[in-house]
């Protein structure tokens, strides 16, 4: 990217016109310090203190007890494994569908491009709770799919549809499609069409164009999609609670149960802080990879 530095005079003039940046930033930054940074710091502090049955934390010095409990108890280890499995499987499915859909929208949809994009945004704007609830109606024991199968003569309903790991994966993979599609679409839309045309003229087939031009240039969008999808997937707890049962019990459900139902702040905050670290790591990695891709393609 080439950017020409603006003359200093212009910036000085802007300060004269608008005043000092602090005037604009005190309120937003203050709000984030009080309601985001302070709670996250306190979260870390509580997770490093001995657990307590009556209060937020017990007496005593800093300890890694809560983390040790999470990492050594079979129950929590199982929860971590289930979460990683469900989040990763759903990510792969939703990304595969999203990249396919983004390609069609960006290069093949012609006049349907805008209407389909609007439908995608509409699907994204509906309340998550409503979407998950609607799937519950479909997947239940007496749900639409099972009773439909019964009518077709298969009178042995599929028990496993609701309250299973598969149900959580289905619901999550579908509800995250708009999310995975839109950033990839935006990146593909920015690709210079003449590149594809000249590749075509020089005899490159569809796969060559896809793997050598489209996917590398869409990579920053794909990385954004991964952050936008993977982090919420890991901390998901509406779908696990509403359609997951015991087989689909994830970290989010564990945090919510420990803190809201059991008052176990120690384990709850330790799990939350682990999620926060994972978020930071995923964001940093995606940012780094997106930058490398941008630099190497520039």
């Amino acid at each position: 990217m080439v950017s020409v530095a603006e003359p200093r005079r212009s910036w000085r003039r802007r300060r004269r016109l608008h005043g000092h940046p602090a005037k604009y930033l005190v309120l937003p930054v203050g709000l984030l310090l009080v309601l985001l940074i302070a709670p996250m710091t306190y979260l870390l502090v509580v997770s490093l203190r001995p657990p307590s049955i009556t209060g937020i934390s017990g007496p005593g010095g800093p300890t890694l007890d809560n983390y040790e409990q999470v990492l050594t108890t079979d129950f929590y280890r199982q929860v971590l494994v289930t979460s990683a499995f469900i989040a990763t499987t759903s990510l792969v499915i939703t990304l595969a569908i999203g990249i396919g859909l983004a390609y069609i929208l960006a290069f093949r949809a012609d006049r349907l491009e805008m209407p389909l994009l609007l439908l995608l945004v509409l699907a994204d704007q509906t309340p998550t709770i409503t979407k998950v609830y609607a799937w519950r109606i479909l997947l239940g024991r007496q749900g639409v799919i099972n009773s439909g199968l019964e009518r077709l003569g298969l009178d042995d309903p599929i028990d496993a549809l609701l309250f299973s790991r598969a149900a959580v994966i289905i619901v999550l993979s579908v509800t995250f499609i708009p999310f995975a599609t839109i950033p990839v679409y935006a990146a593909m839309k920015a690709i210079d069409l003449s590149l594809l045309e000249s590749a075509n003229d020089l005899g490159a087939g569809f796969m060559t164009r896809l793997t050598r031009i489209i996917l590398p240039l869409a990579a920053p969008g794909i990385f954004i999609a991964i952050i936008l999808v993977y982090i919420p997937l890991f901390s998901e707890f509406i779908a696990p609670t509403m359609v997951g049962g015991t087989g689909g019990y994830m970290i989010g459900s564990a945090i919510s149960d420990q803190i809201l139902d059991n008052g176990n702040w120690g384990v709850g905050t330790a799990l939350s802080f682990m999620l926060l670290l994972l978020t930071a790591a995923a964001a940093a990695l995606s940012y780094y990879l997106a930058r490398i891709k941008q630099l190497s393609s520039a």
């Binding site: 709670p39 707890f237 905050t269």
Partner: peptide, 27 residues
Amino acid sequence: AVAGLVGAPLVVSWLVMGVGALLLFSA
């Protein structure tokens, strides 16, 4: 740094933000 801070709520999980806010309010 300020831009990163403003962008943070778009990335940090709502669950973690919710737990943190609950913790702050009860403290």
